[in-house]
Design a binder for these strands. Structure first.
Lengths: 156, 156
DNA sequence: GATAGGGGTTCCACTAACTGGAAGGTCAAT
DNA sequence: ATTGACCTTCCAGTTAGTGGAACCCCTATC
């Protein structure tokens, strides 16, 4: 099969398949003309990767999962451990986003959304910073809001 | 104020502040020695940015929000529109992650996690791809799982 | 005056997981 | 011979920074 065929059958874009080869997740042999030659083994690997990615596993997780998949001797606990960590991260992310949603939802609800300039959303963002020096000033004005872990790739 | 002072007062790392200058979000003047000179105006801008980012607004959203913040004439509806879109995206992301959590949670629950190799998680990922040609084969085997939008930066 | 430290400056590279596009080779059919 | 669809590689860009190197500046101390 050529890359176009496996792309269609696996559901992964050809670009992605080439990328997966680049990073060593698949190693299709080449034909004389330089084309990649995929067999069912490679197709299954790619489909596996597609499903794992669709469950939000990181590429590095996928790499491990793939080696566990190919190891007929490995214990299910090894797989379960990875999945549990991933699940925990997903759930943590959900909580973070729910907190964000609540705060922002409140702000949006309180904003009239009309032609007038008064806006609780901007007012909330625009709280003035203290002009005083030193720690007290900072402590008095700091209203720590959790930073949503910007490595929001944390679904992984 | 030097960059270290505004960093402490705004809670943003100095590196981030320099980056925000790079992309034109703040424009502190320079001293003779080349140091950036921050005033309370810049400090407030940075604090504004920190809060907006902590609510998950993208840099581009922040840029818009900032210009709306500085426009005393703008209507609250303009601000609300941005916030609503952002809120919708957060809520969509939450739903996606909840679906993932449910699927993965089920798989994890069904996995014994012991020394034996049998593992529902791997089995789920490893479903064989049909060896037949054509659309029917693909339709018969495709079990479309929603791809969690990989631009998972979608909290923005 | 030399030196040490704790600032500051720039610039380059790296992150995750691709995606888009350019320039060009291959193949089957017309 | 020439389309057109496919394949190849390579480079750049995406998000929002972060880490590090090399180097400048300022103040205090010896």
């Amino acid at each position: 099969m050529n890359i176009g065929d496996v792309s269609e059958r696996s559901g992964l874009p050809a670009k992605t398949i080439r990328y997966y080869e680049d990073i060593g997740l698949v190693r299709p042999p080449r034909r004389e003309n330089g084309y990649r030659e995929f067999g069912y083994r490679e197709l299954n690997t790619l489909a596996f990767l597609g499903r794992a990615r669709s469950l939000g596993f990181s590429i590095e997780d996928c790499r491990t999962l793939l080696s566990l998949y190919e190891d007929r001797e490995r214990s299910s606990s090894e797989v379960k451990a990875i999945a549990k960590i991933h699940l925990t991260q997903i759930d943590r992310k959900i909580e973070e986003l729910q907190a964000l949603s609540a705060t922002l939802g409140d702000l949006v609800a309180r904003c009239q959304g009309d032609k007038r300039p008064d806006c609780p959303i901007i007012d909330d963002l625009a709280q003035q910073v203290s002009r005083e020096d030193g720690d007290q000033a900072i402590n008095r004005t700091s209203r720590k809001r959790d930073k949503p872990s910007l490595d929001i790739h944390a679904t992984q």
